[in-house]
Design a protein around this nucleic acid. Structure first.
Lengths: 352, 352
DNA sequence: CGGCCCTATGTAATCGATTACATGAAACTT
DNA sequence: AAGTTTCATGTAATCGATTACATAGGGCCG
C-alpha cells in the first residue's frame, strides 16, 4: 500500500493537472486495472473487499474514466445525434427537451445538428455518424442521410440505429414516432365545418414535406365528409414560419371573396396571419376564423387565443429517445408509435 | 500493390460493415500509416505523389478517421459543450443557432446540456468536462461548474477553456459575451418616461440572476434621471416565463391605482401580461403601455406588436463561439464583448 | 570527395480503457 | 481423494489513430 514514489504515478505535484487514470486507481487500491474496470462495469464479479478498496481509491483520486479510451475499445460512445431542420423553430425546442431528459436518464449525451437546409452539412453529419462518433441518431428532418450512392467501390456504410421523429420516413425500416397528422387535420376541418364555415382556406407547409401531405389529405377528407367542395384557390402556400403566415394573410386580405375560416398548418403561420389580418382592419374571429396546428406556448396567449391541435411535444421527444435507447441496448423497439393529439378550442375560431 | 489476401485486411466480403482503418488506406496506397496521417494533417510534409496515392486510397476505401482513437492520442475532441438553463425557452434557440453555425464552420460539434435547474445534472456535466469529452464550453447559465470544493484529496480539476454568454459570471477570468443590460433597461425606462408615464411598473427576472440585477439597476437609474420616484410596490416578481407575466398581469388588474406603463424584462412575460390585461378588459396601449425585452420573433406579431429591446441573439451566439475557438486554438481572445442593443418601438407603448 | 543538412518516409511507442484468456484457490461432486 | 466447477483476479492483447525517433537518400558546400 506504499503509494509513494512507485514508478510513474501522476505524482500530483503542484500544478500537475493530469487526470487520474485507471492505473493510478489500481495501484492505490492494490489491484489490477482489470479489477478496477470490473468493479465499475460488473460489480457482482468482484469481491466486496476489493470493490470497497477500488471505490475508495476512485474517490481519493477523483478518477473519471476516459471516454475516448473507453469508446475506442468498446465501440460505444454513449452519444446520440439529433438531426433537425431548424433549431430556431419554437416547435422543436420542447421536443428537444423531452429527448434530452430521456437520454440523460439513460446515460446518453446529445449532439445537435441543425441542418439549416444545407446539403453540405448533411454530408458532414453523415460522415459524422459513419465515423462512429455517436451510437445512434434521432431524425426530425424527414429523410435519411446521404441516400447511399454506392459508386466507386465505396464500402457498405456503417449503419447505426435510427429513429424518425415527427416526420415519418416512408420506406425506412426504423421506429417512427409521430402523431396522426391526417386524422388531426381531418378533425380540425370537421370542427370548422361544424361551426358553419363553408369556405375554408388552407395554409400549407412545404409541398415536399410528408407532414404537409398528410395534413392536406386530412383537410380534403374533412371537406368531403362535411360535404364541402374543395377549391384549389383556397390553398395558400406556406412553410410553417411566421413570415409565411403573414404572406398568406396579405393574399387573403386582397381578395374580394374571402373565406370565412383559415386553417393554418402551424401556429406560427396562424399567428403571422392574424397579425396581417389585424393590421388590415379585419377582426378574428368576427370576420375570419383562424385555426393553427401544434399548440406552441404562444398559442394560448395570442390575441385572440388560438384554436389549434395540441401535439404532445415533450412526450414525442421522450418516446423517440426511449425507442432509440431500446435499439441501442438490443431490446425490441416499437416499430411505430402514434401519440394522441387533441383539438384545443380557444377564441380564434367562432361559429359563422 | 497486390491487395488480395494480404494478412488481415478487412476483406469487405459481403456484409462486413467494418469501417476502413488507416492501415487499410496505408496498404492500398503502399505507404506507412504515418504517411497517411501526415498526408491529412500536414500535407506539405508529404511528397505530391504519395499524397495523391493516399487521397485516392481514401476515396476508394471511404476512410473516415476514427475520432475516438484520434482523441485518445491527441487529447482533442473537437466538441464543445453548451450549458443552458432551459432549452425550451425561445430566447435561447436563435443563440444556439449562432453558436452552432460558427462551431460547425470551425470543425467543432456541439453537445447540449439543459440544466433544468437540477444540481445533479450540473454535477454530471462537470464530470463530463473533467473527463475530457469536450475541448471547451459555453456557459449560458450564469455560473461556473461545481465551485470546486477541494476537500478529500481531490486532485486539481481539469480546467478547459470556458466562455460566458449573456449572463456574465462575476469574478471569472474568462471571456464574457453579453449586452449592456443596464444601459438597455435605462434606455427603455427613459423612453417610457419621455412619453409621459410617471407610474411605471417593473416585472423582474429571478432575484438571484445577474441579468435581473443589471436591468433593475438600469430601471432605477432611468427613473431617477427622469425625476421619477422609485416605488417598490410597482416591482412585480417574475422569472422570464409567460406564466410569470400572466401572474403579474393578474396582480396589476386587481389594483385600484394601476401604473400607466409596465416594463417587463422579457418578451415572454410581456406577452403573458398583455394576455391577462386583455382578458380583464383592459386595452394595450390605451389603458396600459407594455414594454418587453429581447425582441423574440413573436414580439413583432403580438397584438399589439411589442415595444422592446432588440438583442442580437444570433450574433451573440456567434461571438461566443468565436471567442471560444480563439481560446481553443491558442489565439488571444477578447476578454469582454458587449454587443449593441436597440430600442424597437412598436404599438404596445403609447404616450400617456 | 567527405561531411552536413534537409526531405520523405518508416518503425514503433503511446494514449487509457476493456476484455479474452490464464491461473490459482476454494468449493463441491461422486 | 481425485476430479470438476466456480470464483476472484491478474496478464496482456486490443481498439485506431498520432507522433517521437530513426533512417535512407539526395543535394550542397568547402
Amino acid at each position: 500500500m506504499d503509494d509513494i514514489g512507485q514508478k510513474d504515478g501522476p505524482e500530483q505535484r503542484g500544478l500537475s493537472i493530469r487526470a487520474a487514470r485507471i492505473q493510478d486507481v489500481a495501484k492505490l487500491a492494490d489491484v489490477s486495472t482489470a479489477t478496477v474496470s470490473r468493479a465499475l462495469a460488473t460489480p457482482e464479479r468482484v469481491s466486496p473487499e476489493a470493490r470497497a478498496r477500488v471505490l475508495e481509491a476512485i474517490v481519493k483520486t477523483g478518477y473519471v474514466p476516459n471516454p475516448a479510451a473507453r469508446t475506442l475499445r468498446s465501440q460505444k460512445t454513449y452519444m446520440v445525434l439529433v438531426v433537425l431542420p431548424d433549431l430556431a423553430n419554437t416547435f422543436f425546442s420542447k421536443i428537444l427537451r423531452g429527448i434530452e431528459e430521456t437520454l440523460f436518464e439513460a446515460g446518453y449525451g446529445m449532439i445537435i445538428s441543425d441542418l439549416d437546409g444545407s446539403p453540405e452539412k448533411e454530408a458532414h453529419f453523415a460522415a459524422f455518424t459513419a465515423a462512429g462518433r455517436v451510437d445512434g441518431a434521432i431524425l426530425l428532418n424527414g429523410h435519411l442521410f446521404g441516400q447511399s450512392r454506392e459508386g466507386e467501390g465505396k464500402p457498405a456504410r456503417i449503419s447505426i440505429p435510427l429513429v424518425a421523429l415527427c416526420e415519418a420516413i416512408p420506406g425506412a425500416d426504423i421506429p417512427q414516432i409521430e402523431i396522426d397528422n391526417r386524422a388531426a387535420a381531418f378533425r380540425m376541418t370537421q370542427h370548422l365545418a361544424s361551426l358553419g364555415h363553408r369556405r375554408i382556406a388552407y395554409v400549407s407547409g412545404p409541398a415536399a414535406n410528408i407532414l404537409e401531405r398528410e395534413r392536406f389529405q386530412g383537410f380534403k377528407d374533412g371537406l368531403e365528409t362535411a360535404g364541402l367542395p374543395f377549391d384549389p384557390a383556397l390553398v395558400l402556400p406556406g412553410d410553417y414560419t411566421i413570415e409565411a403566415g403573414m404572406r398568406a394573410g396579405q393574399d387573403l386580405v386582397a381578395r374580394s371573396d374571402r373565406p370565412t375560416a383559415v386553417f393554418c398548418t402551424s401556429d406560427e403561420m396562424a399567428i403571422g396571419l392574424m397579425r396581417t389580418l389585424f393590421s388590415a382592419g379585419l377582426k378574428v374571429p368576427d370576420d375570419v376564423s383562424v385555426a393553427g396546428f401544434d399548440d406552441i406556448e404562444f398559442a394560448a396567449v395570442a390575441e385572440p387565443s388560438l384554436t389549434t391541435i395540441h401535439q404532445p411535444r415533450r412526450e414525442l421527444g421522450q418516446a423517440a429517445a426511449s425507442a432509440l435507447i431500446d435499439l441501442l441496448q438490443g431490446r425490441p423497439s416499437p416499430k411505430r408509435i402514434r401519440l394522441e393529439t387533441e383539438l384545443v378550442t380557444r377564441d380564434s375560431v367562432a361559429p359563422l
